[in-house]
Amino acid sequence: MTNPFFNRDIISIKDFSRPELKYLFSIADKVDSLDYERKKELGRGKILGLLFFEPSTRTRLSFEAAMLSIGGNVLGFAHPSMSSVEKGENLADTIRTIESYVDAIVLRHPMEGASRFATEVIAKPVINAGSGTEEHPTQAMIDLYTIMKVKGRIDGLNIAIFGDLKYGRTVYSLIYGLSKYRPRIFLVSPPQLKVKREALFGIDDKIKVSEHKDITEIIEELDVIYVTRIQKERFPDPHEYEKVKGSYIIDSELLKSGKDECIVMHPLPKVGEIAPEVDNMPNAKYFLQVYLGKVLRSGILISVLNPDPYSLIDS
């Protein structure tokens, strides 16, 4: 397969086919297998622009670590107050300017659709690192990669997506990503935080999806629990939040009632929705997700920036 990622924008997971994702995962595996010095050769001379119009320590550092690990450089800003946006400059002008300095741009922006708009403004590849509550495609790729690494497959797995399914930006991309495979998806959330209708448009006829309020009803069937944080600010009534919060926690007792090999994933940060004792259980894979996130993003960057990453890696 010729490299399907070269010079390509990464805006939505929907734009990528299953064979293309397989290609990416294989590049990531190859990168991960290289020693430190070899890795450093892969991105030498390349510059990645990190434009974060909204703070995000985790995603930004992951991209930065990924680029540095392959010997490339990064520039950009972590907050709009550190750019000309503060002076009133619009997004179009900002990215046109930065495009002159870099080989690709990673963009996070509070407005939905900002990354798609950015692709119309500049010619260099744009990687969407989250726009509003819209998609977060690289996180979904990481989630799929993690499941593949741990379980060896996605087809046939019973996967619960749990917590805030309405506002969590990772949820939409994950559902779209999973729809390229053949898992059974259980959406578990408080009624007020159910997925928006667009999340299931066009995919509910491809994969089996069901909605639930209570995870205990299905825990025995699950192979993967993907947990997202329920945010207090989403509830107009703090009392409602307190009621909901208590029933949306993954703890060791719950996990013991499920399959031994059921894994727990989380895009992080987590703040109480997973009991601390779970961190030390073999089921917990969220810190592995963080590590694989850096690996996969290295794979993305190498593939976007080079026409033939296999030859580069094997040379």
Binding site: N90, M111, E112, G113
Partner: peptide, 13 residues
């Protein structure tokens, strides 16, 4: 109609 859509901003869009 989405107020947080980039198409409702001051961008040339």
């Amino acid at each position: 109609p989405n107020p947080t859509c980039i198409s409702n901003s001051n961008e040339p869009i």
